[in-house]
Nucleic acid binder design. Sequence first.
DNA 1: CGAACAATACGAAGAGTTTCGTAATTAGGT
DNA 2: ACCTAATTACGAAACTCTTCGTATTGTTCG
Lengths: 128, 128
Amino acid sequence: MSTKNTKPTDAELDVLRVLWEHGPGTVREIHDRLPQTPHRVYTTVLKLLQIMCEKGLVKRDESQRAHVYEVAVSMEQTQQNLVNHLLAKVFDNSMSSMVMRALSTRQASKEDLDEIRKLLDKMEGDES
Amino acid sequence: MSTKNTKPTDAELDVLRVLWEHGPGTVREIHDRLPQTPHRVYTTVLKLLQIMCEKGLVKRDESQRAHVYEVAVSMEQTQQNLVNHLLAKVFDNSMSSMVMRALSTRQASKEDLDEIRKLLDKMEGDES
DNA sequence: CGAACAATACGAAGAGTTTCGTAATTAGGT
DNA sequence: ACCTAATTACGAAACTCTTCGTATTGTTCG
């Protein structure tokens, strides 16, 4: 239940990214894999993980001396939640304006543009 | 200076949206135009505006008895900041994965899809 | 066993956000 | 001038997030 509505904070997203990329790990491992900046002390990361556990963002395996944490929310679902939230809150649910804003400051690669074009084709195909 | 780095909170975004849509207004006007849910008492909105003023998100005209507030940040710039932040933090700067996630849960209208396609064409044109 | 080390648990502090009650201020009407 | 109504100013409370220091617990090794 808590997994659904919980919107991860920026610090929590840092942790989730590590777990999504490297898989489950102990506090020490996660701590070492986090970005250097901002610097975070070991116990800070521990506390963060404990709270994320209460929120249902991660699960904890206590069978080992050093508890092993793993994600409890999928990257896909989290990405969807966040992008939908932004879309509703800031872009009035207009996909095109969001894409426009993103394109206006960012050097999208040709591969990216082609990729998006394919998605559009697929979308339009499904709809008809 | 404060206008640049300040990332508006969700409550602040509600206020900004009202101002972007309706233009400058008094606390009472803004209060009445805010979404019903969550309900916010008049003085809560006032305080919010005062703090946003300190942050540089809005400007205040005190020449009238009832102060008139207006935005100090453009919708475009704010949208760019937020979408870029999301892109970097959650999508590893991959436009296409963000668009894919957005499309995967959302009924994008045909107009939206066409609009995006035009943007892509324009982008690719500028690049060559 | 006991020393040393490593991990977890706990709690508190500081910052930021949001809320709202109460006080002070100002303007209008009679 | 005075009462009333509306507004702003102020500050406190509740909550969350983040940080880190310290205490406690557990493990290993001599």
